[in-house]
Design a protein around this nucleic acid. Structure first.
Lengths: 138, 138
DNA sequence: TTAATTTCAGAGTAAAATATCCGAAACTAT
DNA sequence: ATAGTTTCGGATATTTTACTCTGAAATTAA
């Protein structure tokens, strides 16, 4: 089902993008996220906790509590989320699964895949999530 | 671990590329493939059977038996293998996992991802597996 | 201070992906 | 014919990923 990123990573991207649409500092509960996005409650909760632990989100318990971005959405890139959840695997692993590929020996599509990876990286850093959230609102 | 294609698909690509290095018509056993490539015996066997069922390989039982490409490696593309095993998911699914993305509404990186997908497609069709196998031999 | 609402932490379950086993059928060579 | 070697088909097992449950701790407001 998922293409390039893990399921938790996809959910994290969706959630962060949702939070980026809120006014700065406003708290959003896991409950709201689960109803607006189509993500199981306990699962998104875990992911949000994880992002909080990694300092990308800020959280607060109690009523009026919830989650918010830890810093301005203008200063957060897609790449920050992706690397927090999935690490850098997509950058290092051979697209054909050859374990040797990368050093001395290299697979048959290594160079082409390298270019594509650069494009992907570019996609992840070229816009901040504030701009992205704004785009999606239309 | 795997980046873009499923594990079985990665294995299939490796196996087919190995077969493409053989002279036309020569049979190769699952046993040989499992020892040359780093793929579990029973698993690669299944994948080869699957590719045989899908007419990409030809097979024969008994000693001297094994698997061979069903047609000339000059007429087989990477895309043929990928679509046989994984289908077209990477072409249709949203990279952020939004189920609505694609029709009316569209996600924040839809256009960029579309370009990348075109690059990937290009990578899968620009060379046939005969050329690829030749390259990798050096 | 109590009840309600939220996140937190850790364990548990379910489903999907990956890998294995086994007995049968097909083929080859002796 | 028979023994050896291979693929075939279907079931099973294992591992990883996705998802859930439960009880506790923090916060808020009445």
């Amino acid at each position: 089902m998922s293409v390039l990123f893990s399921r938790p990573c996809e959910y994290a991207l969706q959630a962060v993008l949702y939070l980026a649409q809120k006014r700065e500092g406003e708290m959003t509960s896991a409950k709201e996220l689960t109803s607006k996005l189509d993500i199981p409650y306990h699962f998104i909760s875990k992911i949000l906790q994880d992002l909080t632990y990694k300092k990308l989100l800020y959280s607060q318990t109690g009523p009026t509590g919830g989650f918010a971005l830890a810093k301005s959405p203008k200063k957060i890139l897609f790449l920050d989320i992706v690397e927090a959840i999935d690490g850098k695997d997509y950058k290092t692993n051979c697209v054909m699964g050859f374990s040797e590929c990368g050093g001395e020996k290299v697979c048959a599509v290594h160079d082409k895949w390298k270019l594509i990876k650069e494009n992907i990286h570019n996609m992840l850093v070229s816009k901040n999530i504030f701009e992205m959230a704004k785009e999606m609102n239309r």
